[in-house]
Design a protein around this nucleic acid. Sequence first.
DNA 1: ACTCCGATGTTTACGTTGTTCACATTCGGT
DNA 2: ACCGAATGTGAACAACGTAAACATCGGAGT
Lengths: 210, 210
Amino acid sequence: MEAGNTRSYHHGDLDAALVAAGYELARAGGADAVTLRATTRRAGVSPAAAYRHFSSHEDLQLAVGARAMADLARSIEVHQADATDPDPAVRARQRLIAVGEGYIGFALDSPGAFDIAMFGLFTMEHAFAPETMGDTGRTPFQLLTDAIADLVAVGLLAAERAEPAAITCWSTVHGFATLATSGPLRTHPRPELDALGARIVRGLTDALLR
Amino acid sequence: MEAGNTRSYHHGDLDAALVAAGYELARAGGADAVTLRATTRRAGVSPAAAYRHFSSHEDLQLAVGARAMADLARSIEVHQADATDPDPAVRARQRLIAVGEGYIGFALDSPGAFDIAMFGLFTMEHAFAPETMGDTGRTPFQLLTDAIADLVAVGLLAAERAEPAAITCWSTVHGFATLATSGPLRTHPRPELDALGARIVRGLTDALLR
DNA sequence: ACTCCGATGTTTACGTTGTTCACATTCGGT
DNA sequence: ACCGAATGTGAACAACGTAAACATCGGAGT
């Protein structure tokens, strides 16, 4: 009795169903809401069933986090769609700014999803995992390094400054996103955070590129 | 039967004893290790006893976090002790760099303490709480804003750029610290992280101050 | 000096969580 | 049509946060 689009067994594609259920919980309540029992409950299945697909609670949370990370990539991609300046140098700069704004925008729009995406904070190989790729087949980290590479190619950034520049950008944007979603800035009104975020991203790129 | 230095009741100063016990657990295992039961166990007391001093588990964790935050302030103060250049402008710059290096150094030296310090990520008023002050009576956040204010006073930074500059510094340093302790950079060898951190802090201040 | 009250700590209990193990059901190949 | 492997269930366990009833201690007031 196949449903058609997905392979079917006892309850359909439970693996994906659990990730979907966990993602809904995460969006509503952050990483802590993605409890093993709540997730299986929402998927209409017994707690132990999760162990046929995930080796532990943490493993499930990482899978949900990967799903969230893919949405983060998509958010960056959407912002990058506006980077259409004919001048390659200007466009490269726009693309880097889009990374920062997409990252921050995603965190502010869906703090719960952002929280689970950063759960455990993944490892470096996690930053290249296919499950965390957006629609263009690139992970958030790759979108950042791509943008930096473009800046080098276009002559706006010295090659030997590429690595620290990438880490600086990542740190700043990530730091601001966490301070703004779960940190001391969390009580600031949204428009103020948007303005502050935009100002920081632009100020940082200006500062880095001469 | 007073012990002398501390007021005594049933078990001595349980409030402080619990924070101390929790801090040891946090240093060894991060915020998650500061479980209510483990902390009371280590203090030689029953779990429910904690509720005479803290309204909830989270409340206890926040108290332990404040203790860790005070140590963070002390780490910054130690680094700032080296900022002794006779030129006030150079000294102001040194002091800002010391904030970043003290922050990052503390995170790398005691990731568990750093983790609990950032637990819940505190609120803005938490950033001014006396329990989080170092030996100079200033909190980490205040040490940062002090340094920025000095730069303005000395003419190295325009006054209207002070606030975004402060948030940028905070974001970058905080972001790098989390990426380096619990993030994808966590597997990098320590000396490499030290060098990277120093390079980022210096590069950022150079970029911000013209 | 004695009593009493409030502050402090204990015991017991409840519900929730992650996890495991023995058991039941279903699917797919032969 | 069967059988083994894959998948889901049920019951159980230890650990957790929390609450309520009970015990004990110290100091204030007579």
